[in-house]
């Protein structure tokens, strides 16, 4: 195989930059809203600290059910369809649906429910005895969420985050097909449409390396945080 590195490297460098850009933006919003939704899902459930917001169990149950429903909708749409459906919304807030910044919008919308469910699982793994101990010490709900639930679930949340990043990488390749740019876009345009296997294989290697690194770092951080 005769590879012209001088041509390929700038193209790939730009693509990697675009991929990191869309994933980076999406990740920030995913962390913030995913944590929020995950915490709400757990705390408004029966036995959660907000099972009865404003003294109403009914309100808690309604919030829980509505939130769960929305999250499930988000998770039931295949990313490519979600992306198309969200085009008007993306245009509204970014002004265009082309480019990595615009692609961050559907990526975020897709990743929030995914990450939120993983956060929910992580929080449910925290021993209820710890919540009880905190309550017996007179802890407020906020303290219980911050210093017990989220603090204890940190290792699992870091692993959930790495899973979400890898999903985002996956979605970003699909976003590439409708003009987002990025590594996936190169693989499709150069590798698939131009039959240039050197691009195809190089992008595959890059993707593998990125995923391995994400997982490696996340596992190391999780191990560091875990004292179980």
């Amino acid at each position: 195989m005769n590879i012209n590195w001088g041509v390929m490297i700038p193209i790939l460098a730009k693509a990697i930059g675009e991929t990191f850009q869309m994933i980076g933006i999406a990740l920030v919003f995913t962390i913030v809203f995913g944590l929020l939704v995950g915490v709400l899902l757990v705390s408004t459930d029966e036995g959660g600290v907000y099972e009865a917001p404003f003294g109403s169990r009914r309100l808690g149950a309604i919030i829980h059910a509505v939130l769960g429903f929305i999250v499930n909708i988000g998770r039931s749409l295949p990313f490519i369809i979600l992306m198309v459906v969200l085009i008007p919304f993306t245009r509204l807030i970014i002004g265009t649906f082309i480019g990595p910044t615009a692609a961050a919008v559907p990526l975020t919308i897709a990743a929030i429910p995914f990450f939120a469910r993983l956060v929910e699982i992580a929080l449910r793994e925290v021993d209820t005895g710890l919540v009880e101990a905190a309550r017996s010490m007179g802890a407020t709900r906020g303290t219980i969420i911050w210093k017990v639930l989220l603090a204890e679930a940190r290792p699992s949340i870091v692993l959930a985050l790495s899973t979400s990043v890898i999903s985002l990488l996956n979605y970003s390749a699909i976003a590439g097909t409708i003009g987002a740019g990025g590594i996936g876009d190169i693989a499709i345009r150069y590798g698939y449409q131009r039959y240039d296997n050197s691009y195809l294989f190089t992008t595959i290697i890059i993707l593998i390396v990125i995923v391995q690194m994400v997982q490696l770092v996340a596992s190391a951080v999780a191990r560091r945080l875990s004292h179980r």
Partner: peptide, 12 residues
Amino acid sequence: MVFQHFNLLSSR
């Protein structure tokens, strides 16, 4: 209050 299963925070 003290508990049968101690209920200590593992992260602390």
